[in-house]
Simulated assay, not measured.
Amino acid sequence: MQKVVKWLGVVVILAGIARMGMTPSALIWGGDSHQELLCGYVAAILMAFSSIALYLPQMKETGKLGFAAVFITAAGNIVISGQQYGIWAYGAYAEKGLFVNVTGALVGIGMMLGTILLGIVTFRAKVFPLWNVLLFVVMLVSFGIPGLESWFALFWGLAYGAMGYTIVTSRYRNKEAAAKSLSVAS
């Protein structure tokens, strides 16, 4: 199980890099450019697939709440990948209507709540280093600051990539708790 989690950690790093790639793409070619959307699409797929790696090392400490946070985040990334593919492939958002507006709002709220919940349970579990949690805080704060809209993806990718780095290098704050969680997952 430790090897599987480490390989998923590599995917988390790649997802973070892809998400970070959205920022220079948006700054150079503009928001919703093909380059930015391609980075976002790849990042969303990789994040949806690998988010479970953020839960497994702290599973015993976070329990069902941690699983719910990761599940919401992964599900949101799946929906976001569909939205980004649609814009990338067809050059426009889906026809605005009740369904598109409601699902868009629910995904946005869900992703934000899932990310906030993931940051909280990660902080409380004390398995990942504090700097991993602080990067989540920076990411969330950057979302609400006017003028940093294009930079949000950079901080989002950095927070994910940092957790992936911790997983791959096993530089957990509480190595015993991580080892227990991974042994239970086996």
Score class of each variant (00 low, 15 high):
residue 162 A to G: 10
residue 55 Y to S: 11
residue 12 V to P: 02
residue 34 H to V: 02
residue 159 A to S: 14
residue 108 G to N: 12
residue 15 A to M: 08
residue 133 V to M: 05
residue 1 M to P: 08
residue 136 F to Y: 12
residue 171 R to G: 08
residue 114 G to H: 10
residue 52 I to P: 05
residue 33 S to Q: 02
residue 50 S to V: 04
residue 12 V to Q: 10
residue 146 P to C: 02
residue 29 W to N: 08
residue 141 V to L: 08
residue 158 L to M: 13
residue 178 A to C: 08
residue 76 G to I: 03
residue 181 S to K: 07
residue 159 A to K: 10
residue 44 A to I: 09
residue 84 Q to F: 15
residue 51 S to G: 15
residue 16 G to K: 04
residue 107 V to S: 11
residue 120 I to K: 09
residue 156 W to M: 04
residue 20 M to K: 07
residue 99 F to T: 12
residue 148 L to D: 00
residue 127 V to Q: 06
residue 82 G to C: 12
residue 77 N to C: 08
residue 79 V to K: 03
residue 175 K to H: 07
residue 50 S to N: 14
residue 50 S to P: 15
residue 137 V to E: 01
residue 114 G to R: 11
residue 151 W to K: 03
residue 101 N to T: 06
residue 175 K to R: 15
residue 65 L to V: 10
residue 174 N to W: 10
residue 43 A to E: 03
residue 125 A to T: 02
residue 81 S to L: 08
residue 2 Q to L: 01
residue 27 L to G: 04
residue 111 M to H: 08
residue 21 G to S: 00
residue 163 M to S: 14
residue 33 S to G: 01
residue 86 G to N: 06
residue 130 L to P: 04
residue 27 L to W: 09
residue 138 V to D: 00
residue 76 G to P: 05
residue 17 I to Y: 11
residue 47 M to V: 09
residue 24 P to W: 12
residue 47 M to I: 09
residue 147 G to P: 07
residue 158 L to P: 02
residue 139 M to V: 03
residue 81 S to F: 11
residue 180 K to D: 12
residue 127 V to I: 06
residue 10 V to Y: 04
residue 25 S to A: 15
residue 23 T to V: 01
residue 57 P to S: 13
residue 116 I to S: 13
residue 66 G to F: 02
residue 186 S to Q: 15
residue 45 I to N: 10
residue 26 A to W: 14
residue 60 K to H: 13
residue 77 N to T: 02
residue 186 S to L: 08
residue 96 K to W: 12
residue 133 V to T: 15
residue 133 V to H: 01
residue 129 P to Q: 02
residue 42 V to P: 00
residue 133 V to Q: 06
residue 73 T to Y: 12
residue 140 L to S: 00
residue 44 A to P: 05
residue 140 L to E: 01
residue 136 F to Q: 07
residue 154 L to K: 10
residue 98 L to K: 12
residue 48 A to V: 01
residue 166 T to G: 04
residue 42 V to Q: 01
residue 68 A to N: 04
residue 20 M to C: 12
residue 26 A to H: 11
residue 42 V to H: 00
residue 74 A to S: 07
residue 178 A to R: 11
residue 156 W to Q: 10
residue 86 G to D: 05
residue 45 I to T: 05
residue 45 I to A: 09
residue 47 M to C: 13
residue 93 Y to N: 14
residue 145 I to V: 13
residue 143 F to T: 13
residue 60 K to P: 00
residue 17 I to C: 12
residue 120 I to W: 09
residue 44 A to Q: 09
residue 161 G to K: 14
residue 52 I to H: 14
residue 31 G to P: 04
residue 77 N to P: 04
residue 151 W to T: 12
residue 127 V to Y: 15
residue 175 K to C: 04
